[in-house]
Write a protein that binds this DNA or RNA. Structure first.
Lengths: 200, 200, 200, 200
DNA sequence: TATGAATGAGGCTTCATTCAT
DNA sequence: CATGAATGAAGCCTCATTCAT
């Protein structure tokens, strides 16, 4: 009834995959894990997807589109948007959940050198996100919030890289404060630098 | 240290594991892969290690000790050391090989939320490396090369996080220039900031 | 005979089964294959037949009745009928199609040692066909076309066996001329022998 | 110790495959069936053969080489050899066993239109066997046992086809006397014809 | 009638692990 | 030390079958 191509079951499978991936990790992710989360049979998964890989490709797209929507929903002036962006990337509040999302992404990325299709799907999104951040900086320059000599692409790369790395290291050490600390450092050492100081 | 257990065979197994991990990735790493790289039988691996997990734990230690030795070998004044550190983390020269090493580390890190022993062994090293970098900054402040208000721990976190993230994103996009670009950004937006400007 | 059960759908399923069997072979024949050829759902097949085996039993009967009708339609004097029979068994003209029919039969026959019901249904037909050929020979003797010492049953067995074998070997070699060659040999070494030579 | 490439285990697997194929038929043949006959684990089969198909290809070669050796072992003057050949093809004595062998071959042949490798391996052997029979006839002509106008190739085709077909029909009907009857018919209608009659 | 969703059994294959030699 | 043979558990996938609609 008015559904666009993707059925409800499809969405449920994606969510089950997400939970299974968070719980078991990519290397231990099985169709059975996913079926268990779905509370349906393995056979059903193959009814909807030709293979595990196909399902995972769909999952990457699902994950990224959620992510892209999340980013696109940020509103406000450029400097606030950048703050909010970093904030959401970091997330102190519902840390558990979003940590998991980023962990899932990290695992898929770690696989991408061994799987062309994973890499392609992930790369497309990485580019989109980077462009989004660069665009925020560019807008900021136009609106006079950021300094004219700030380099949008370069700043975007640095912001994304450090946030990604923070999460990775946070996961490794099992220290959830790592991302927040890096977020702060990023503000102090990078964002502050490119802000046009009103009274200076 | 000349003991019998850390024999030559042990080292050969570690190297074979490294090659196998680089070639197949963590999720597809099998004892057979490793045995093939070693050009020995699977049985031999089990003679030296009780299980695959033991072998991988040993491998983590091997990888990290190599890495720590590498870092420890850096010499010179603090600002040069920091540059060199970033340089080695990035590695333009023998990119292929060191990319692989960092990929191997990344894969193991991605597993650490699901394996306590992995996490412990990796965390110990992460702390050492971070302390090493912080120490460099601290020395720099003492020696008047870095500004007194630079925060050693915070800078160390930011440097490590951004380099890690750069490599991760580089993998996703399959673009090996990514780390170098971030390294440049790091220099421009962070290191430059904390350097004591001689004529300013 | 105008009953409702042997409906049009039934015939369509039989034809779809035929096409699916020709395309995939018995060992790879699935309900899905058949449904695909029918351009209907699998569920429909189970609505019409309780199980795959029931469907195949029905298919054997369908195949054989088609075959028997074909044979029954042969007209003319006994020697011509025998020629025509062998000709149809061989089929140079629409080779592709009839090859497929005989292959389908062969596959079902190869299964019959493992399936009593298959064997029963196939055996009934084999007997009918053999009797038909024997009858032709018998008629030929009565009408003085074949020699009085020809043994109808024995000749029928030899004719059918050699044609069957020719097709089987033709399949193996992938050589469609095999049956024709055997047909010729059959004429030369067997039929010629039992023909009453008018001027000898 | 002095074994030529093919280990004893290899032979045992081939024999187990033979038994499993006889018992379950091609369409129902599973690696488990074979493992059960071997009284070993499924895993072992994959240790020796990369896949089920690989195992079956090896099995075809095994079956055919046994068969070819059997034929090659026939001795005596041409007419006796031809008799003996037909006799062995038919086999009244240990019917059960040899019936099974030919059934196995028939099943594999029925698959050959769907499997190129099966077809190639089977075709090679079919050609060899046919040539062997033709050679017997040719020798017979040279030695004056068979008539000079007998066509070796044609006779070989007819003999093989009728024997093959006889077995197929015998299987279908479940009537083990069928091959013997056709063998007799073959002798009476074909072999007799090409024999040089000493007192005629 | 007819379908699409769903299941469960079972098939092929992989793989860590064990063990006799 | 080292190997090759062997195992058993588990993974992906296929498929006949069932059922609500």
């Amino acid at each position: 009834m008015g559904n666009d191509e993707q059925s409800e079951t499809h969405a449920e499978i994606m969510e089950a995959t997400y939970r299974a991936l968070c719980e078991h990790g990519y290397a231990s992710l099985t169709m059975q894990n996913i079926a268990d989360e779905l509370e349906k049979s393995k056979g059903l998964l193959h009814y909807h997807f030709d293979s595990k890989e196909e399902l995972l490709i769909a999952f990457i797209d699902y994950l990224l589109s959620e992510f892209e929507q999340d980013i696109a929903s940020i509103e406000g002036p450029p400097d606030k948007k950048l703050d909010e962006f970093i904030e959401r990337f970091v997330v102190v509040a519902d840390a558990g959940d979003r940590q998991a999302l980023h962990l899932a992404l990290l695992e898929l990325r770690a696989q991408s050198p061994f799987n062309d299709r994973f890499r392609e799907h992930l790369a497309r999104s990485d580019t989109i996100v980077r462009d989004t951040v660069a665009e925020i900086v560019r807008d900021g320059i136009t609106q006079g919030v950021f300094r004219a000599d700030a380099e949008p692409e370069v700043v975007a790369q640095l912001v994304l890289a450090s946030m990604d790395g923070a999460r990775t290291r946070g996961l490794t050490i099992g220290d959830e404060t790592y991302p927040a600390a890096v977020s702060e450092a990023l503000n102090k050492y990078v964002i502050d630098d490119i802000l046009v100081k009103t009274n200076e």
